[in-house]
Design a protein around this nucleic acid. Structure first.
Lengths: 151, 151
DNA sequence: TCCAAAACTTAGCCTAGGCTATAGAGTGAT
DNA sequence: ATCACTCTATAGCCTAGGCTAAGTTTTGGA
């Protein structure tokens, strides 16, 4: 039963390198996206986003959050008012909106292809940072096509 | 047209933290998986896997490869015979096999939901490390279900 | 009002994963 | 047999993203 087709040739060195480079870039932005997304969620749901709560929700120490927030401030995504919580800049809010939209899309897509809601939510956390625009478009098309049938 | 449903409540702190922790664990193993997968591919396709070639295909300097290989050796995944190339240990080969199977599954799945082969291949590079076993199982089921129709 | 608890900051440390520059080793072609 | 070229290793540096421990501020309740 084994398909003994011609072994798939390796991609060209340049193509493959380009993929890995893009990959590493995505990794670098992932943390920033997770933070602004979470800050936006907290602001919406609780009215404020405290560093302590971020630490608890990210599963990380307060010191790590402080560190990360400093970077996000440097990058113009977040503003802090000590003892008043964290706020998003224009750019931060925009990034959060895009991140959230992507997250939601990925979750809905995963559910549509048969994953339970819990796992979909958990996996989306990782997958959302690595789906290209083309992939997201494909997911959206898939959801559209299947919205007539179920739901 | 805006669905103005009740705002989705935040997940519990513990659940959310657990997701992010799992996330970070996946990130840590991703590089190792990429390396052993690539080494396996090179061994298969070219008969040998040289550090130089890894550097070119990973889009990284030779020094970085040397560094990474040292870690992989320490972790019992890779063996080196200088000027003879790199080899996988038992554990390394096993990891490579699993990684490759996952990679292939993700690629086929992405194509099945409408992505072009090129993008599927590129995106799989990132996505493969963040799909849980449950997600992979769902992808496999999806492919099975759709294999009767097309192809 | 005041003071303990909670929130935040700072210092110091670590690993992974990048880099450049340079030195050293091995191979293969002449 | 040699020597140029290729491959590998090493030194030294950097950032991100973790940690613990030990301050410092602020807040809010008694």
């Amino acid at each position: 039963m084994r398909r003994n087709a011609v072994l798939k040739p390796l991609p060209s060195e340049d193509d493959q390198a380009a993929r890995f480079v893009r990959q590493r870039e995505a990794d670098r932005t992932a943390v920033a996206e997770d933070y602004v997304e979470l800050i936006a969620d907290l602001l919406r749901a609780e009215g404020e986003a405290r560093a302590v709560d971020l630490a608890r929700r990210m599963g990380v120490s307060q010191a790590t959050v402080a560190n990360t927030i400093t970077r996000l401030q440097r990058d113009g995504l977040v503003e802090t008012r000590p003892y008043r919580g964290l706020f998003l800049t224009e750019a931060g809010a925009e990034l959060a909106t895009r991140a959230k939209a992507r997250h939601e899309l990925v979750v809905r897509f995963l559910i549509a292809v048969g994953l339970d809601a819990e796992t979909a939510e958990a996996d989306a956390e990782g997958l959302e940072h690595h789906a290209s625009e083309k992939a997201l478009a494909a997911f959206a098309r898939f959801l559209d096509a299947h919205n007539g049938k179920r739901r």
